[in-house]
Structure formats: structure tokens, C-alpha cells
């Protein structure tokens, strides 16, 4: 087997792990990383995106439009949840654990009652391609590209647009922003919706590749939390490098010793990173910068 094939396979595995970590984590990076809401219902926002995507595709829409619907539906649910529950809890972020855990119970069991225990899959588009002895799924490359695109879009959103600047200002010093005439309530709502929408996007993107069941969100949640936590508070400076580091560890350990060690390696990497950089990666980067 020649070097190029091996290199491509390693790169593909890395990209695959990276896409999964980053797409799982992006929504949480906004809601938890930026806003400090410990969102245990993150997996259920992902599930919501996946379900709506699958339902719209079954109804005849093409997949990209279905994913868009899934994203928007999650964002809409996010607005509702923010309005009804989260809005009252910004002063006491630890209580969001209980509230979002409750929401996640309602969402999983509610989905089971209303939609049934499973939903038919939609099938993965695009087929496969061959490199050396291995064949690969093209859709996985799409996922990797999507992860990069989401990161770029987030960077642009929070650094170059008026909303992004206002959002960062509001979340850092809310009363100052309010004094300057910013509608902080609206900003909070929109930011939360943005995070929920990103979770829905992850669900929509992964919907064609996974089993659709009410508890499917649970498979994302651990990866999402560890990526966000070791990334730290800054969405772009934290999530991207954290996803990169963890993806290297995870894909490396998995191909070397199997899936169990991939998972255990991921957890050990988290402990080490937190020990070395107690403020997360973005905390470290920002401190170096100043």
C-alpha cells in the first residue's frame, strides 16, 4: 500500500472525526460557550433538526432544503425555549442544568409519543469514490466541508456583522450594552436561536447517516460538551482548535487501538488539556495575544 493512500486515509479519518466534533459542538459553543447556559437539551435540538429534515425529505423536498427546514425549525424551537424558560435563568446559570434536563425529558418522550419510536431514514446521497484499496463515502467529505463552512460563517457573523458585535458586547457586559441602547433581550433571544439552529443544522446534516430515534441526541452530547469546554468561551478561537486536537487524538487512537481507546483517549485528552490550560484553549490564545 503506497504512502499517498495511507495519508489520504488518515486525513479522511481525521476530517470525519473533526466534522463530527465541530458540528456537534458549534451550537453548544454559542449557547454554553458564549451565553453560559449549560444546555443539557442540546442533543434534543439536534434530534429536532434531524427529524424535521427527514420529515420534509419524505414529504418530497430535496435534502439541502430539508436541512434548511430542520435548521430553521430548531432555531424556532430555540426562540420559544428562550422566551419561556431560559430568559428567566440568565442570573443563575447553574439552574439551567435542571431546566434543560427537564426540557430534554419532555422532548425525547414527547417525540416518542407523538411520532412513534422510530422514523424511517432518508438515505445518504452522492455515493462513494475509490482511493487505493478503500472506497469512501462522498457525503463524509461534504460533512467536513460543512464543518469548515460553519466555522467560517460563525467567525464572520461574530466579528464582521453588527449583530455579532452587539451580541458579544451584550453577553460580556449586559448593562453597559443596554445603557448604550441595545435591545439586550432581543440579542439574547437571537443568539440562543442561533445556537439552537446550529444544533439543528448538525442534526440535519447527520440525519441521512444515522438511525432516527427520539434518543439519538445522546450520541452527540458528550463530544459536544468536551469540545466546547476545552475550547473555552470564544466560539471560533476555541471550537476550531479544540475540534482539531480532539479529532487527531480520537482518529489516531481509534485507528491504532479501536473505538474504545478512541473514546477513552478523547476523555484523557480533555483532562490533560484542562489541567494545562485551566481557561480552555481560547482563554490561552487570548491571553497570549494581549
Amino acid at each position: 500500500m503506497d504512502i499517498a493512500t495511507l495519508a489520504f486515509s488518515a486525513l479522511y479519518q481525521f476530517g470525519d472525526a473533526f466534522a463530527f466534533l465541530v458540528l456537534s459542538a458549534c451550537g453548544l459553543a454559542v449557547i454554553f460557550g458564549m451565553m453560559g447556559v449549560i444546555n443539557l437539551a442540546h442533543g434534543e435540538f439536534i434530534m429536532c433538526g434531524a427529524y424535521v429534515t427527514a420529515a420534509t425529505v419524505h414529504a418530497g423536498l430535496p435534502l439541502p432544503l430539508g436541512i434548511l427546514c430542520g435548521t430553521l425549525a430548531s432555531a424556532f424551537v430555540g426562540v420559544l425555549v428562550e422566551l419561556l424558560v431560559i430568559r428567566h435563568l440568565y442570573e443563575r446559570p447553574l439552574d439551567t442544568i435542571v431546566a434543560t434536563w427537564g426540557l430534554s425529558l419532555i422532548a425525547t418522550q414527547g417525540t416518542l409519543i407523538l411520532v412513534g419510536s422510530t422514523m424511517a431514514g432518508v438515505g445518504t446521497p452522492f455515493g462513494s469514490f475509490q482511493v487505493g484499496a478503500y472506497s469512501y463515502s462522498i457525503y463524509r467529505i461534504v460533512l467536513f466541508v460543512a464543518a469548515l463552512a460553519v466555522l467560517a460563517a460563525l467567525y464572520a457573523l461574530f466579528n464582521w456583522t453588527r449583530f455579532g458585535v452587539l451580541a458579544r458586547a451584550t453577553i460580556q457586559v449586559p448593562h453597559m450594552a443596554a445603557a448604550l441602547g441595545v435591545d439586550t433581550r432581543l440579542i439574547y433571544s437571537l443568539t440562543f436561536a442561533c445556537g439552537a439552529g446550529l444544533a439543528g443544522l448538525a442534526g440535519g446534516l447527520y440525519a441521512p447517516t444515522m438511525t432516527l430515534v427520539p434518543t439519538m441526541g445522546a450520541t452527540f452530547i458528550m463530544e459536544a460538551f468536551v469540545t466546547v469546554v476545552i475550547g473555552g468561551a470564544d466560539v471560533f478561537l476555541g471550537t476550531a482548535p479544540a475540534g482539531g486536537i480532539l479529532a487527531i487524538v480520537k482518529s489516531g487512537m481509534t485507528s491504532w487501538q479501536g473505538q474504545l481507546f478512541g473514546q477513552i483517549g478523547l476523555l484523557i485528552a480533555v483532562i490533560i488539556v484542562v489541567r494545562v490550560l485551566p481557561k480552555g484553549i481560547s482563554g490561552f490564545v487570548l491571553r497570549e495575544r494581549t
Binding site: 472525526a17 482518529s251 481509534t254 473505538q259 474504545l260 473514546q263
Partner: peptide, 20 residues
Amino acid sequence: EEFIPLGVSQFSQSIQNIQK
């Protein structure tokens, strides 16, 4: 032979191992 922990949903590496 390969063993997958419960709850794992991503199989790219296993697929490659099988092809190998």
C-alpha cells in the same frame, strides 16, 4: 474482529478496517 462500545454512532474507521 472489532468491538464497538455501546452508543457509538460513527463508523468510518471500522469501515476502513473491514475493507483492509
